[in-house]
């Protein structure tokens, strides 16, 4: 009966949380350990097993209130992880793609005619999006660390998720724009190099993966635990 009290509490708490599986597991392990320690302390004070566990759970706090605080931390942790990935992978992916293009297709001048100004504008804007998105993610990470104790955790989680969504959205928009522009200019260029087609597909898989991570960030930051 007594052991059920702690397990029930931990299970209830776990069912309300959303975030990285490892982070959730760590928090629940700590919770279980803390409740077990508290139970042992109350047993030493002369309570029965069932009473000791009930007291330990009561002292730990109402599950809804605790889940609310845990969820805020999980959301920040998930946002931080996503922003780290964005800061590192986006510029690397862009550099790899550009290097591949230069190697396999060559500079735009080699096409005989230079693309029109509007196309170059879109191409340059798209080139910048990865760098800007990565920079914004990096700044958000630094500010998040500096402001960790100054602002409410739930607010930081929402801002972090917002930054991740906007950063991924910008990169997505840049990539869609350049594909549509290229298709409008000369659709054959999109498929003229098989290795570059593969590189483009890989880029899209990474972008979609980031999109899913950003969406989950938002979900973790806005869920009512």
């Amino acid at each position: 009966m007594g052991a059920d009290v702690i397990e029930r509490y931990v299970t209830d708490l776990g069912s309300r949380l959303q975030g990285s599986r490892r982070q959730v597991r760590d928090l629940l392990t700590e919770t279980r350990d803390s409740l077990t320690d508290a139970t042992e302390a109350h047993l030493d004070d002369g309570l029965t097993e069932a009473e000791a566990q009930e007291r330990a759970v009561e002292e730990f706090g109402p599950v809804r209130e605790i889940a609310h605080e845990y969820q805020a931390e999980l959301a920040v942790a998930y946002g931080t992880r996503t922003l780290v990935w964005l800061a590192i992978v986006l510029p690397l992916m862009h550099m790899a793609w550009e290097y591949g293009r230069m190697l396999l297709i060559g500079p735009w001048q080699d096409f005989g005619t230079m693309p029109p100004a509007w196309y170059l504008f879109i191409a340059q804007a798209n080139d910048l999006t990865s760098g800007i998105a990565s920079g914004v993610a990096l700044v958000a990470l630094i500010l998040g660390r500096i402001l960790a104790r100054k602002y409410d955790t739930r607010l930081l989680a929402k801002v972090g998720a917002g930054v991740a969504v906007v950063a991924v959205g910008t990169v997505l928009l840049g990539n869609i724009s350049i594909i549509l522009a290229t298709a409008h200019l000369d659709a054959a260029r999109l498929v003229q190099s098989a290795p570059m087609l593969v590189a483009t597909l890989i880029s899209w898989i990474v972008i979609i993966r980031f999109g899913l991570l950003a969406r989950r960030c938002l979900s973790c930051a806005t869920i009512v635990a």
Binding site: G61, A77, R145
Partner: peptide, 18 residues
């Protein structure tokens, strides 16, 4: 204080690098 509130606070201090 509900003892469960200590753990999120420790995570917050960890995030701040303290």
């Amino acid at each position: 204080l509900p003892t469960g509130t200590v753990y999120p606070a420790l995570r917050r201090l960890e995030r701040a690098g303290h």
